[in-house]
Design a protein around this nucleic acid. Structure first.
Lengths: 135, 135
DNA sequence: GTTACGGTTTAGACAGCGTCTAATTCGTCT
DNA sequence: AGACGAATTAGACGCTGTCTAAACCGTAAC
């Protein structure tokens, strides 16, 4: 994602597009790698040494609050981020730990509405196994 | 769960039933609270002060390896344990963070076998929302 | 009963993730 | 240039989890 588009997106969501926030946004809003916060810090700091860990964490949490990013609790020991904020499922490769998106329509979940006594705000299927094999 | 039954279960799975392991098993194999490792340590240490954090972690990992317990990566920042090792789904209460089991048959997931190029070893639906409301 | 042995437990050091704070820097407006 | 609020920074801190080396069992042999 380029500089100008990142700034545009931030502004449109009420976030002041500082240089550091643009740098974070350029990477994290345009990846399918589901990076952790520390991974984002590594990548962004490599390009732009003038950024601190705290700023990366603050910016990521801000992007989540503003709906540009979604937090996933799927990987052990850390939270990862996904710029795809539309409903979809996730596949976790057990060998590599890599997380892959599975389109919403690829699976069919029924009877969610039939659950009694609960208010479901969102749901997803989390699959684990091996990715990239003859299925 | 009582002393004798815990010892029996451990032995049956090839685990020497020491006093510390029995104490951990008595609690964690008979709860629906989905406790974290540190929570297990708190509860067990309160009853039996002669146990260390390392032993609790070691015992929990051992129970997982032996199939008596399942690890869940659902809560932020920590792993939780579930003595229900049969397939089932999970509901996360967003207000309290509490995790509830949802029976396998309560939901119906279709088209998993139709996924191409993957080898699915297991899957579950993770729901988030409010538990205990008129649904 | 004491010796020896393998397995278990222990305290504490250590590393990674994430938050917080106080001080500094930045951008803008005057 | 000066002043102000917002953003950023380094580092301290707390929690989760693993590792290590030493101490501690329990049992079997003498």
């Amino acid at each position: 994602m380029d500089h100008a588009l990142a700034a545009q997106l931030l502004s449109r969501h009420g976030i002041q597009p500082s240089a550091q926030r643009r740098a974070v946004a350029e990477y994290v809003l345009d990846t399918v790698a589901h990076p952790s916060a520390d991974r984002v810090f590594e990548v962004v700091a490599a390009r732009n040494p003038r950024i601190s860990r705290a700023t990366v964490y603050n910016t990521l949490n801000l992007l989540v609050r503003r709906g540009l990013l979604k937090q996933l609790v799927i990987a052990e020991g850390k939270v990862v981020f996904d710029p795809n904020v539309r409903p979809h499922h996730h596949f976790v490769d057990e060998a590599s730990g890599a997380i892959h998106d599975v389109p919403w329509d690829a699976l069919d979940v029924r009877k969610v509405e039939a659950l009694k006594g609960v208010d479901v705000r969102e749901y997803q299927v989390v699959l684990r196994g091996r990715w990239g094999r003859r299925g």
